[in-house]
Design a protein around this nucleic acid. Structure first.
Lengths: 331, 331
DNA sequence: TTGTATGCGTTATCAT
DNA sequence: ATGATAACGCATACAA
C-alpha cells in the first residue's frame, strides 16, 4: 500500500498536520522534528499524492506543450531544450502530439497550469478561455489574446543580408520552404525580401527557390537547381537547419567550395550548425535563449494569475549572427 | 468560479450524489433525471475535476509514453498512431522526452496508470516497481520483468529473403544502421543474416553496408557505395523507411531502374512507403496494428491490476509483406 | 430511484 | 511548536 503522511505521523508519533508542515519546510516546526520526519519519510518511501495536493492547491505544477507536427529537426531540438529547462524548475512538462484543439481539451481535463503552443501549422488563433497559453510564433495577429514569443525574423534576415552585403555580396539567393501555409515560414520569407529591399538589392526570381518541404533532399534539389543557372549567385541564405546539409551537399557535388566559390548562411541558431560538412555561419535566436525565454515567460504568466492583459508577456527576441566558416568575400 | 456537481445539484434540485451517478451513467438513476442533469451540466459548462476524481478512484486514466529520442521518422509515425489509438479509448496519452529514468520519475509523481516505453536507445532493463510498464522491443532479455510487444524481426527478415529468393534473387544486399548500439537494430541485423543462412544463401561482406545513421543521406551514401561494386547485387533489403528515399535516389542517379535492374524491399510497414519515387514493397508489422496492439495490451495490463506474471502480455507480432512496385525477377 | 454520509491525501486555519 | 479539523470535488456504500 502507498505510504501517506498519516502513516509517517503514526510512526513519528506526531500529528499528520505536523508532518505536512515539516515536509513543506514550514518554519512553524522545530528543526529537530523536521529532520526526523524528513528522514522517516525517505526511509518509508513516501511519495506525495499528486491528486490530493492539486485538489487542495488548485494547481498541478504541470505545463503542457502542444506539438502536432513531430517532424522537423529544429523543432525537436527546441522541444528537448524546453523540456530540460522546465526540469530545472518546480514544474513538469508534458507533451501532446494531438491536433491543437484536442490537445487543449486533454490538457484542460488534466488541469495543467499552462500551455505552450507552437504556431507552426496553426492558422487560426486559438480560444484560450481562462487557461494561460503562451505561443511561440509571430507577434502580429491582433486577434490573438494570448502572449507570444517571437524569434524576430525581420531582424534576423536583416542581419544576414547586411552581413553578406558587407562582405561584398550582391547576388544573394534564398532557399526555403515557400509553399508552406505556416505563418512563421511566411513571415520568414517575407522578411528576407524586405531585408534585400532595405539594402537596395534586387531580388532575381531565379534566386528565390522553393524547397516545398523540409527534408534533406528538398534542400539538395533546390540548391542543385540554383547552381545550374548561368549566372550563379555568390551567396545563399538558407531558410532552416533542416535544409542546410542538403544545400552543402549540392554545392560540393558541383565541385564548388564553400566559402571560396559560394557563401552560405542559414537561419536557425543551434549548436548542430557546427557539425555540418562545412561549419555553417548562421543567424537566429540561440535555441537555448529561446527555450529559456519561453519557459520563464510561461511560468511568470502562470504565476501572475491575473490573466488580464496577457500581451504584456509578448516578447520579440534578438537574433544573433554566429560566424563560422561558410561565408567569405565573393570571388 | 469552476462549476462542480454540487452546483449542478443545486440547480437541478437533486442531491449531488445523484448528479454524480447520472454523470457516470449509473443505471441507478432514472432516464429522465439523467437526461436533465446531463443537459444541465453541459449548459453550465461543467468539467469534472481530474484531481478529485483520481484521488478517490486511485487512477488517472492517463498513460505515459516515454520517447527520449525524438528524431526518427518511423518512430514519430508510431507515436502519432499510438496517440490516435489512445484517443479512441477512455484514456489520455501524455509524452515525455526526458531520459527514461527521469521520465519514469515524472510519470510516477503524476500517477499515470501505465507507461509505454520504446526500447530504442535503452540498453539496461528498467526497474518497474509496481507501475505497469509495457515496452516496444525485443522479447529476449530474461531480466526484464515487464511485458514487451515484439515486431518479430526474425519472421520479417525471413519473409523478405524468402520473397526475393522466390523471385530468383541470390545476390542480395542489406543496407542498414549496423553501428547502432540499439538492441532493436541489432536484432534486426542479426535476423537478416539468419534468414540468408536459412535459405542457403551466402552473405558477401561487400553486400552488407553500414549506413551509420538514419538520415536520408546515410541511405544515399551507402547505396552509392554498393552500386560502385563490380559485381552488383540484384536485390537490396533496406533496414528502415528512414533510409529508403536515399536508397531509391542513389539507384536512379546511377540510371538504374527499379525493379528492372535492381529490386528493393524495405523494412517498416507504413503507408508512406507508397509515396516514395517508386512505390516500395515493404515488410513489417503494419504500423496501425502495432499501435493498436501496444495500446490495447497496455490497457489490458493496466486494468488487469494484478501485476503478477506480467510476461503474459508479451506478444510477438506477425509481419506482413506488402507488394508494390519495387521488386521483380533479376535480369 | 434518490439522498446522506464517509473517505480519498493533502494543505490551511484555527486552537492549544 | 504542535495538534485538531475543515475543505478541496468526487465516488460510493448505505440508508431511506
Amino acid at each position: 500500500m502507498k505510504v501517506t503522511i498519516k502513516d509517517i505521523a503514526a510512526v513519528a508519533g506526531v500529528s499528520y498536520s505536523t508532518v505536512s508542515k515539516a515536509l513543506n519546510n514550514s518554519p512553524l516546526v522545530q528543526e529537530k522534528t523536521k529532520r526526523k520526519i524528513i528522514k522517516l519519510s525517505q526511509e518509508m518511501g513516501y511519495k506525495p499524492n499528486f491528486a490530493a495536493r492539486s485538489l487542495v492547491s488548485n494547481q498541478t505544477m504541470v505545463i503542457g506543450l502542444i506539438w502536432p507536427t513531430i517532424d522537423r529537426i529544429v523543432l525537436s531540438t527546441l522541444v528537448t531544450k524546453i523540456s530540460n529547462e522546465i526540469r530545472n524548475t518546480d514544474y513538469s512538462m508534458v507533451l501532446s502530439v494531438d491536433p491543437v484543439e484536442t490537445s487543449i481539451e486533454t490538457f484542460k481535463r488534466f488541469q495543467v497550469d499552462g500551455i505552450i503552443l507552437f504556431e507552426e501549422n496553426i492558422s487560426n488563433p486559438i480560444e484560450t478561455e481562462s487557461l494561460p497559453i503562451l505561443s511561440y510564433g509571430v507577434i502580429n495577429d491582433a486577434r490573438k489574446n494570448y502572449p507570444t514569443i517571437d524569434p524576430n525574423y525581420e531582424e534576423a534576415m536583416n542581419k544576414a543580408v547586411k552581413y553578406l552585403f558587407g562582405l561584398g555580396h550582391t547576388k544573394i539567393a534564398y532557399i526555403s520552404n515557400l509553399s508552406s501555409p505556416d505563418p512563421m515560414q511566411i513571415e520568414k520569407n517575407r522578411s528576407f525580401r524586405k531585408a534585400m529591399q532595405l539594402h537596395g538589392l534586387s531580388i532575381k526570381d531565379e534566386y528565390i527557390i522553393d524547397t516545398e518541404g523540409f527534408n534533406f533532399y528538398d534542400g539538395y534539389t533546390a540548391t542543385s537547381k540554383l547552381l545550374n543557372l548561368h549566372d550563379r549567385p555568390t551567396a545563399i541564405v538558407g531558410g532552416s537547419y533542416d535544409l542546410s546539409s542538403g544545400i552543402i551537399r549540392a554545392i560540393s557535388e558541383k565541385k564548388l567550395s564553400i566559402p571560396k566559390d559560394i557563401s552560405v548562411i542559414s537561419y536557425d541558431n543551434i549548436p548542430e550548425m557546427e557539425n555540418t560538412e562545412v561549419p555553417l555561419t548562421c543567424i537566429g535566436v540561440s535555441i537555448d535563449q529561446l527555450a529559456t525565454e519561453i519557459v520563464h515567460s510561461m511560468i511568470k504568466f502562470v504565476e501572475n494569475n491575473v490573466i488580464s492583459n496577457p500581451k504584456q508577456f509578448n516578447k520579440k527576441m534578438s537574433p544573433v549572427l554566429v560566424e563560422r566558416e561558410s561565408c567569405g568575400t565573393p570571388s
